[in-house]
Design a protein around this nucleic acid. Structure first.
Length: 406
DNA sequence: TCTGGGGTCCTAGGACCC
DNA sequence: TCTGGGGTCCTAGGACCC
């Protein structure tokens, strides 16, 4: 790992952004909770690897990989069950530490955040010193390793934190950005994934410097041109849920049971935050892995299980009817998803004032079920016709960690 | 052994209005 | 009969991120 150690004199008007990223977060928490796991290759999960420790990553084990494949790559791998509520609690503690350094904290997932520290310099010193204090406090107070990138823009800070991993700090000096970036692989740029990386590689472009000097430069906004601000607590623009279930024929039983379950999750989250949405989108993935989407926008916002289920069912049937499978693998489907967007606030009071239309009656029913669940737990009331889904590949607690604030 | 689940953003075409 | 251009909303697909 290399770092610019020169302390940068704060340039007037130059913003300083930190990107702080907890290292192998779930796996690090498991190693924190159980000292016997420290220094060993571990994976959280079972059938699917949800997270891997650095010791396991060295063998090529990655999140999303099947457990079988992971064991092939790393025979000494230890699987542990996740302590999901601990992940949330410890990550929240880390964010609280961040907030001690600046109010301008934008959390972008459970385990990483941007901080604008431009206004904190007079309190804590130059940005690299702030980054090191922050890392030390997270280590002492929470016990977890965190890597931090320091730079003039969000994109640059994000690149810097990746270079800093594991457990390091990297500053990109605003006066030497190109020198720093040029030798790095293009894949480090936020927004350049496997597809774009391959397209660039086909044209002989592998480094950021080569990209900057090429005609394809506009493919991605240059990290140095990034003007996005650190925004505290942006609200989610959509809510969704999906379920993968291997290959199955799209029978009425399958569609109603899976869509009912998904609609229950999505609409329940909307009601819990007094929100509703006007656009319903479904996604159908065939056994061939080809996926299609169908969406519909309504005049009235939706937040009830039954209305959402009905709309989703109609859209999925439409998608299946349009498909006319030419491929044998498109007679069966492997995933269904529901997403609701164009969200609006919908306080309960406001809904009651709308009068006794169908959806407000449904809303009242759902709302009382929500109340029962709040008191006695989710399992207390099953959705009509939906026993607990027999094909859940990932625990609900894990799903909840990925949910964004509505 | 086929490849989980939560999101965001961008593009492009068509409908519709002025 | 044929013709313009701008703006907004909706739909579908896809890349990407954690």
């Amino acid at each position: 790992m290399f770092a610019y150690t020169a302390v940068v004199a704060p340039l007037a008007g130059v913003p300083f952004i930190l990107h702080a990223d907890l290292d192998a977060f779930y796996a690090s928490v498991e190693q924190l909770l159980d000292p016997q796991l420290r220094g060993r290759p571990i994976a959280v999960g079972g059938g699917v690897v949800l997270a891997a420790s650095y010791e396991a990553k060295r063998y090529g084990v990655q999140g999303g990989m099947s457990g079988v494949r992971a064991r092939q790559l790393c025979p000494g791998l230890t699987f542990v069950h996740g302590h999901f509520s601990e992940y949330q609690r410890l990550a929240d503690e880390v964010m609280a530490v961040f907030a001690d350094f600046t109010p301008a904290v934008q959390r972008i997932s459970i385990d990483e955040a941007f901080l604008d520290v431009s206004g904190s310099i007079h309190l804590f010193g130059p940005p690299p010193a702030i980054a090191q204090q922050l890392r030390a406090r997270v280590r002492e107070q929470v016990g977890l390793p965190v890597s931090v990138g320091v730079a003039r823009t969000k994109s640059l800070a994000k690149i810097a934190s990746q270079v800093a991993k594991p457990d390091g700090m990297v500053l990109i000096d605003p006066e030497h950005e190109r020198e720093f970036l040029d030798p790095l692989p293009v894949g480090l740029i936020w927004g350049i994934g496997p597809v774009t990386r391959q397209q660039l590689a086909d044209r002989g472009i592998h480094t950021i410097g080569q990209l900057a000097d090429s005609p394809w430069h506009p493919l991605a906004t240059a990290p140095t041109d990034d003007t996005r601000r650190v925004r505290a607590n942006p609200r989610a623009g959509s809510v969704g849920a999906q379920s993968a279930f291997g290959r199955r024929f799209p029978t009425d039983e399958l569609l109603t049971s899976v869509l009912g379950h998904l609609a229950d999750r999505v609409a329940g989250r909307l009601r819990a935050k007094q929100r509703a949405g006007r656009t319903v989108t479904v996604r159908v993935r065939f056994a061939s892995m080809r996926a299609v989407t169908r969406s519909r926008t309504t005049a009235d916002p939706i937040a009830t299980n039954l209305t959402l289920t009905e709309m989703a069912l109609a859209l999925v049937r439409q998608a299946l009817a349009d498909a006319s499978p030419t491929h044998v693998d498109e007679h069966q489907i492997s995933l269904l998803a529901i997403s609701v967007s164009k969200l609006v606030d919908q306080p309960a009071l406001q809904l009651q004032l709308l009068g006794p239309n169908t959806d407000s009656a449904r809303w009242a029913v759902d709302h009382s079920l929500d109340a029962v669940r709040q008191r006695f737990g989710r399992a207390a009331v099953g959705y009509a016709g939906v026993a607990l889904s027999p094909m859940r590949s990932v625990p609900d607690e894990f799903r909840e960690l990925a949910e964004h604030e509505l």
